[in-house]
Structure formats: structure tokens, C-alpha cells
Design a protein around this nucleic acid. Structure first.
Lengths: 343, 343
DNA sequence: TTGAAAGCGCTAACAC
DNA sequence: GTGTTAGCGCTTTCAA
């Protein structure tokens, strides 16, 4: 079912059909009605390749995600909600969101390069930004509109949205210090992803602000999974002088952390204070309830979409915000996992 | 950077360039080398729209998922691992996997219709199959190659892969009965999705096989989330005669279920035996460890990809398996959550 | 208000 | 082994 066939059915030229379907003003209302009715009846929808070739735009926005171990074990929860917010905005502009998973064997940079060079999408949303991220430089160089979920040292004037890791680290440390804790560990992710650096820096700054010396022995890096949490706790407990509190870079670690404490005959919270990161369906059902931080992932998705559109000439008018570089605030959800230190 | 420019650079016709790049035999090895080198140097990659328009194929496979509440809140991640397996197979054929999230506000049928009519993809993988699923009939009618992750009453001769819910239900009930349980509840998902029916039927059949009467009061339907599990347990505990064991349609329910028992001063396992569904990162860290079933999601992805390719004329030769209708076996992972009934 | 026609980038059929 | 060219479906310019 091509526009040609549709035009033949109607005894109209294809040009008129195209104009009618695309809402051009210079078309007889009567004609338009006929065209729309026929298109609907015959289930006609414009072929995207033809349209893209002609217009040079795809009406598709790509969202790259990585299907590595860490995303695989916790990513669905996070991204699905973000997608939903993104789509809500795109739907208004008849843009389609397409998720481009980068296979674990594949290199994220090559992946983005392939996507771009095949002209898959008019714009991109990148996740899992690295501290130095060649994808960002590449997209800038190629002039492809994009926004990243996560900061990076690469680029500069591009749009990004990131969570307020500084705020979280500062607030978590302050809360623990107020509870009498001085020996506060950090369970971090492995180096590479930018969040790892940002979070650790903020943690160090927060310690310094309270006059606490940084001790590398109680900064443990591992995989962001339940098992990773188990192992981190294991290493902390094996220290000559274990910490009395820990700040987790990701709430997925909490479950394994709790379990390791229980296996050692210790009680999470009472024997070691724990503050997680994002409130998740799981963290609410931990016992004791995990102290963590709340944000609306749906709203993050909305903001991502709007920031991207703001950088695209065709949509700039609707979103005159320009370049967006936003630290997303998160709200403390006090739990029972970080009581004051018993003296 | 188009093929035309590339050809001009090389002083060769675009036809030859095209043939060289596409690995045609009738091209001078010397010429091919020059073309490939130039393409690489200039970062040329064929425009997908032009190619699609000409060949009528996109080299893209779409994987539809739904970003509804259950997928969004489900703790563990199912799809990322499946994607990874799917991509491994597609990479061999230079096919790109693209995930098409259906927004929670959108209708899955409309969504598939849009995807198809815009000729986005050469083939589709559908998930979250409904008992009656118009998407299946539609794809068959339109002759679009597809495979579903999940059975359905719709269609017939199409390919699908589904988990062995019958086997799980039968094995779970048998295990509990062997432990002395007779009053075995079922925590099911809400009606609609086909798995709900399949699982419940298998549960009833298993009860019957052991001479146990079906009691609708202990079949509770709710949301597949931690909170859903909490609520299911709540309702079961409120019964005049609570069950001594429960079979969960999804392991995400387990965490809330455990929590509700603990809140009531009961011990999961000892006071109520629990068998979950799939082994997930979380279920391994529950205490007592959840008895559940294991499968390789990566392998499911591989099988999905192969089944789809087997139905596509262009790839049929590599995968001569024809229509695949496969019940995926799952392996029992005994935990401590379903001890024998104390007498 | 409509029709005719060019041309987006590409591949394949055909001519040489 | 290479060049030429038609045409995939569509939008848009230009002419009527």
C-alpha cells in the first residue's frame, strides 16, 4: 500500500494526497476529508524510508542502553520508567522512541558510530556516561542532537541530566555524623562510569567538611548487584576495624549487604548503619527499611525528552530552554537502617 | 557523505562502489580494496533509508516490550539478558535489534500496527502475549515474520517460546504435597496476560492429580510487585483457615510476601512454605533462600532470534528448523523456603 | 487548489 | 569488470 495506489484509488495525484495527509493548508477541505477517510479505510501509513530519504529526517529518537552485567541485573526497573516519561513527550510530536541496546560484547563507541552513520535517528539519548566519553565528542563533531543521562568530562556545552550525587553524599554523611558515626565506609561501583568518580569525590568532600580523614581501606569497589553488596560487606567485616556505617552507591547492593550482616549474626542498622541510594520497590521491603532517596524517573524521562528537543532546530521553538545541564534533586526517605550509633 | 561523493573521490561509478561494498563477486579485487579503504577513511556507511527503499528490507528486528506498572516496578531484570542473547545471533547477520517500548498509555495493538505500517522492521519479537492477542492475527494477516515470547490462543502455526509453567506448577505442588502440605495457595497475576491462565490451569491440574480440591479462596490475583506480594500474603493471613503453603507466579512477589509474614511475627518457610518462580539476583538473597527455578535468559534470547530467522525467507537456509513452538524447561533450585509441614 | 516532475541514496538489471 | 540507468515511496517546488 503505497501513496501511489492510494492516489489511484481516489483519482487524485500523489502530490495532493501527500499534502492532504501532512496537514498542508493549501488543500480543499473536501479533498482532505476524502483522502483521510480512504487512508484510514485502507490502513495506509506513509513508508518511513521514503519519507526519511526525502526529508532527511527519521522521526525517530534513539535511546542507547548497555546490556552489561550491572544494567542486566538492575536496569529494567530504572529505564522502563524513564522510557515512559520520554515517550509521553515524544508522542506529542509524533516522534518514535527506539531503544538501542548495546550488546555486552559490543563497544559503546562503535555502537553509537554505527547508529549515527546509518542515520537511524534524528537525535540520541545516551546513558551510562563514562568519565571520558568519546561518544560525546563524536556526536558533537557530527552535529547530531543528543542529551546524556549522566555527566562526563567530555564535551562541554552539551545538554545533560544527572542525579544529585553530591547532595546525596553530603546529606548521607551529615546524617550519619549527626548520629555519632565517624567511621563511614563507601560502597562504590567499579571505576569507569562517571558516577563512580562524582560520588566518591562528594563523599570525600563531605567527610572533610566534618573533619573526618579519608580512609581508602573503607572505600570498596565492586559490582552493583546483590552479590556485589554481599562481597563489599564481607570485605568490610574482615577489616581490623570495621566501619560503623556505610553509604551505598546503589540500592541494589543493600540486599546482599543485609544478608551478609545477618549471616554474621549482625543486625543491619543496629550493628552497621546503612544508607542506600534510590528508593526502589525492593528497598521498601527490606527490613529494617532502607534509608534512601526518592525521585520520579518518569519526570527524568520527561526532562530528558524536552532537553533533547530543545537542541533540535525543528522543535526548538516549543522548548526554548536551550542547553540543559541539570542536577536532579532527590528527596530523603528516612528509614530504619541508619539509627544513631550506640555508645 | 553519500555513495555519490565517495564514487567521485575514487573516480569510479557509484554502481561499482555499491558492488564492492556489498561483497559482490564481479568486482576487481584491486578496486574493492581501494573502495573499502576509502569508505573506511571517510567513515562512509550506507544510508539505511536509501537501502531500505530500494531493497524493501530494513535489516532491523523490533522487540516490543510494555512499560506498564509491572514491568516498571518488577525488581529483577528479565529483558536485558534476553536482548543480549538475541543480539548475539543477529550480529552474525548484520541485523540490528531495536527495542520498541509501548508506552503505558498506548495500546499494544495500535503500537504494533504503527510499527508495521511504517515498515520499521523486517521482523518482530512480541512479548507479554495476551490470551487472545490481536497483534498475532494482525501480523499473520500482514505476513510479517514474528515470534512471540509467550503462548496465546490466537494464531496457530506461528513460532513461540514460553516457559514451562505447567512443569513448574506440577513440580511445585508435588514438592509441597510431599512435604505434607494440602492447603496450597496460588499467588497469580491479574487476568489478561496468558501466563496467568496457563499457570492457574496447571496449578489446578496438579492439585487434582494429588486429590486436592480446588479452593478459589486461596487463589489470589494481584500486581506482580513487592507490594503485590505483601497484599497477597495479607489476604491469605486474614482467611479463617490460611494455607500452609503458597506457589508464586513471579518471584518479585516473594520479598513483599516475606515481609508481611515477618510483620505478623511469622517466619517465612517455617510458618508458611513458599515456592517462587524464576531464580533472580534478589531471590538468592532472601532469607530463607527461596525455592525457585532456573533458566538461562541469554539462551532464551538466542532461541528467540533463531526461531524468528527460521521464519524469514532470507535467513531460512541458516536455520532450517521451521516453526518453533517451544516450552522452555526450567531447573529446580531448592531453597529453604518450603520445608516439610510440621506436624 | 491541483498536477507534474525532480530527486533524496541506494541497488540491481542491463549494456558494454 | 565497469558504467549507466531505472526506480523503490515520498515530499516539495513549480507550473497551471
Amino acid at each position: 500500500m503505497s501513496i501511489k495506489e492510494l492516489a489511484q484509488q481516489l483519482n487524485i495525484s500523489i502530490g495532493t494526497v501527500s499534502r492532504a495527509l501532512n496537514g498542508r493548508a493549501d488543500v480543499n477541505p473536501e479533498t482532505r476529508k476524502r483522502v483521510l477517510a480512504a487512508a484510514d479505510a485502507m490502513g495506509y501509513v506513509a513508508n518511513q524510508s521514503g519519507r526519511s530519504l526525502r526529508q532527511g529526517t527519521t522521526n525517530v529518537i534513539g535511546f542507547t542502553i548497555e546490556t552489561n552485567v550491572e544494567t542486566r541485573t538492575q536496569g529494567d526497573t530504572f529505564f522502563m520508567s524513564v522510557f515512559d516519561g520520554v515517550q509521553m513527550v515524544f508522542a506529542r510530536h509524533k516522534l518514535d522512541l527506539v531503544v538501542l541496546p548495546c550488546a555486552s560484547e559490543d563497544d559503546p563507541f562503535d555502537h553509537v558510530r554505527r547508529v549515527v552513520s546509518r542515520q537511524f535517528a534524528d537525535g540520541l539519548i545516551l546513558s551510562a556516561t563514562q568519565r571520558q566519553d568519546p561518544r560525546i565528542d563524536y556526536l558533537i563533531e557530527r552535529g547530531i542532537p543528543f542529551v546524556t543521562l549522566g555527566r562526563s568530562l567530555s564535551g562541554g556545552e552539551h545538554s545533560w541530566i544527572d542525579m544529585d550525587f553530591e547532595g546525596i553524599a553530603a546529606q548521607s554523611v551529615a546524617r550519619l555524623v549527626a548520629g555519632g558515626h565517624r567511621r563511614i565506609a563507601l560502597a562504590n561501583t567499579e571505576r569507569g562510569i562517571n558516577l563512580s568518580f562524582v560520588f566518591e569525590e562528594a563523599y570525600r568532600a563531605a567527610l572533610a567538611a566534618h573533619g573526618i580523614a579519608y580512609d581508602p581501606d573503607i572505600v570498596i569497589r565492586g559490582e552493583i548487584t546483590e552479590l556485589g553488596g554481599y562481597r563489599v560487606c564481607d570485605r568490610l567485616l574482615a577489616l581490623p576495624e570495621p566501619p560503623t556505617a556505610v553509604v551505598l552507591v546503589n540500592e541494589s547492593l543493600a540486599m546482599g549487604f543485609y544478608r551478609r550482616l545477618l549471616d554474621a549474626g549482625l543486625t543491619p542498622g543496629r550493628d552497621m548503619a546503612i544508607i542506600g541510594l534510590r528508593q526502589s520497590p525492593q528497598s521498601r521491603f527490606l527490613s529494617p527499611a532502607l534509608t534512601c532517596y526518592r525521585l520520579s524517573l518518569h519526570d527524568v524521562g520527561v526532562e530528558l525528552a524536552q532537553s533533547l528537543l530543545a537542541t533540535m532546530p525543528a522543535y526548538r521553538d516549543h522548548y526554548p530552554q536551550g542547553v540543559t545541564q541539570k542536577i536532579w534533586p532527590m528527596e530523603l526517605v528516612p528509614g530504619e537502617s541508619d539509627p544513631p550509633l550506640r555508645t
